[in-house]
């Protein structure tokens, strides 16, 4: 189990004309072990970039990410990632996509398929275990991608708008499933979303990023127990507060 420390993190992407795109600037964030963090912020503010740096897929221009005191230098199966875009392997059936990480760990075929089936069931796709990704809808693919990341049993789970493509009903169910999984396994989750409602419903803390270059604008703790009642007045109050904060951040730009 792992906490994540992000210190003075900046990221600039070089552009063709010699200038740079400053995606992140001086991000500081201390994520505790077993926390459920939601990252919100306007499009293009660097949420994906931040997740990719934590995952080790991108290197920071300056600053550092450490996990349990060890600097992140590259990708590691201990940090799972659910990508914002379509990332299933189209040549593998659903079950073999989900079993991929276990296969890399050297787990035998029967055993890894058994584990994969469990996660496939969890995301409600048992009927499609032998389907190829092209036979699935966008939302179903995303659920497979989630199952694939979970089956690898990472300590830190990085999720980039994983429920963005789902209908409201499936989305609610997946949120509940994710929460119960998080409570059972005590993973550290960093979850990007555009939905403030989702952030208030899921997270232990909401991190509001400012527009590009992204930096931490506000951190809002949500100290309530799960499951939370979306219809309660406290819920509505917090949601309103966060929304106002995002508005202010955007206007301040």
């Amino acid at each position: 189990m792992s906490g994540v420390t992000i210190r003075d993190l900046s990221k600039a992407f070089p552009r063709g004309d010699g200038t740079v795109t400053q995606a992140l600037e001086n991000v500081n964030l201390e994520i505790g072990d077993t926390e459920f963090i939601c990252l919100v912020g306007p499009s293009g503010c660097g949420k994906t970039t931040l997740l990719r740096i934590i995952a080790g897929l991108e290197t920071a221009t300056s600053g550092s990410v450490t996990i349990d005191g060890r600097a992140v230098t590259g990708p590691d199966p201990k940090r799972g990632m659910v990508f914002q875009e379509y990332s299933l392997f189209p040549w593998r059936k659903v079950v073999d996509n989900v079993a991929f990480g276990l296969e890399m760990k050297g787990v035998g075929k029967a055993e890894r398929r058994k584990t994969a089936d469990r996660y496939i069931e969890m995301v409600g796709l048992s009927q499609f275990r032998d389907a190829y990704p092209f036979e699935l809808s966008g939302g179903m693919r995303q659920r497979v991608a989630i199952a694939r990341a979970l089956a690898n049993d990472p300590d830190v789970l990085l999720m980039d708008e994983p429920f963005g493509a789902l209908d409201a009903q499936t989305r609610n169910r997946m949120q509940k499933e994710l929460l119960s999984l998080w409570e059972q396994t005590k993973k550290t989750i960093v979850f990007v979303t555009h939905s403030v409602d989702e952030a208030v419903y899921l997270s232990t803390r909401i991190v509001v990023l400012s527009p590009r270059p992204g930096s931490v604008r506000e951190v809002i703790p949500i100290p309530w127990q799960h499951p939370r009642d979306r219809t309660s007045t406290e819920f509505a109050d917090v949601r309103r507060k966060v929304l106002r904060m995002i508005d202010e951040t955007e206007n301040a730009q």
Binding site: P75, M81, Y86
Partner: peptide, 13 residues
């Protein structure tokens, strides 16, 4: 690129 990155985060080292 996303396939290669998915492979990396899933343990192809």
């Amino acid at each position: 690129k996303v396939f290669v990155e998915a492979g990396k985060v899933l343990g192809c080292d």
